[in-house]
Design a binder for these strands. Structure first.
Lengths: 209, 209
DNA sequence: CATCTAATTAGAGTATCATCTAATCAGATT
DNA sequence: AATCTGATTAGATGATACTCTAATTAGATG
């Protein structure tokens, strides 16, 4: 349980201007100058606030020419909103000192997770790199997708053609998998061009169960 | 939708010391000096933080001789935790300016609520003040209880005897109703003594539906 | 009433924060 | 290369916030 992360989140929402920004972004992405206009503040002020919102993990951004569009990271906001409720739950029968300690339990859990992933990869990917079948269990599916997506370059723009070919290295049904890549936020599509999303916004296997 | 209230809530949770306080209180109420000891800060610091937590509606307090015990207001924390999620929902298809305006809709809704309450009271309370029956619908039940409880004095300590008699003015089944008073946080019991809770912590009919 | 206990207020110090103006940077376009 | 556009950085200012010590208050008790 990360106290810093939690406090950063609540601090980020503890300012009226930033709450307004989120309310605006709930209607769809928008760029800095438009936000500045709508809120009646200067662009540097927006830069300042967006840095805080980004650190808190409630928005992410995407560049289009000179313009940076900010996106509300919906799922992350919802998850982090439960933060204090989780603390209250877990605090019962736990001393506060150990509640916020990076204890061995967490390290252990991470090791377990890594092992579980390797296990899943081994059972779904053949030695020559083919995907035997798309896992139906969501957690396993995400593990496999995460593995596949690691071969794509961050920041590079791919044509649909290229994505199809890339996926076909693993499996014939590139259409389904390409759609899953979008649905689970591994990739982003605009006008037929695909690009890897920043890792923070992926659906993550570790968040499940 | 109250922007100030929402910001106050998130500000209150945007400090590590206060989050620790909530984690401690999750194990049960505690008084100022104990908190100060556990956290390694001085009593005035606790006073400072508790004022913020109280303003945010996440704790309430109860005095016992010279000692003030702070209680976590569990239900309120959970409800307010959804604050930003609600904003994001409602912000869709609503301009930000009107989203946070105290618009006529709210005033109207309050009027409606008042009317609904009178209606319920009239149908469950006879002209000579007797409760015909305990409403089974939760919302109506709360309306009736709120009405009944208005006849009790704030701050006064009642013996169980007295509460029973008071309730019997309305209905024979004082035991059930007395239990409901506790369950819905209208009253507080300690060692057979009953006392009205501050209104902020009651279960409220307006929060339903 | 004198005393004890726990909490609060007052006031100060230091840190953080929100916002601005002016200057700079990073891409894109001509 | 020169220019344009939108974002960021630097630095200043005034407001808040966190924490402390010292003094005071409010109840309870002998």
């Amino acid at each position: 349980m990360q106290l810093d992360q939690l406090v950063t989140f609540y601090k980020a929402l503890g300012d009226p201007t930033r709450v307004r920004i989120l309310a605006i972004l709930a209607n769809g992405p928008l760029h800095g100058q438009a936000l500045a206009g709508k809120l009646g503040v200067t662009p540097p002020t927006i830069t300042h606030h967006m840095a805080k919102l980004r650190d808190a993990g409630v928005v992410y951004e995407r560049r289009d020419k000179n313009t940076i569009y900010f996106y509300l990271h919906d799922a992350n906001v919802k998850r982090q909103s439960q933060g204090i409720v989780n603390v209250m739950e877990k605090a019962k029968d736990t001393s506060v000192e150990e509640l916020f300690a990076e204890d061995t339990l967490h390290v252990q859990r991470r090791h377990q997770m890594a092992a579980e992933k390797m296990q899943v990869i081994r059972s779904f990917i053949t030695p020559d790199g083919k995907l035997k079948q798309i896992p139906s269990q969501r957690k396993k599916k995400l593990i496999v997708f995460e593995y596949m997506v690691r071969g794509l370059e961050k920041g590079r723009k791919y044509k649909e053609q290229e994505i199809n070919e890339y996926i076909r290295q693993f499996h014939e049904d590139y259409a389904t998998i390409r759609r899953e890549f979008i649905m689970n936020h591994y990739m982003y599509r605009e006008e037929g061009i695909y690009e890897l999303n920043p890792e923070e916004i992926w659906a993550k296997a570790e968040d499940l169960q």
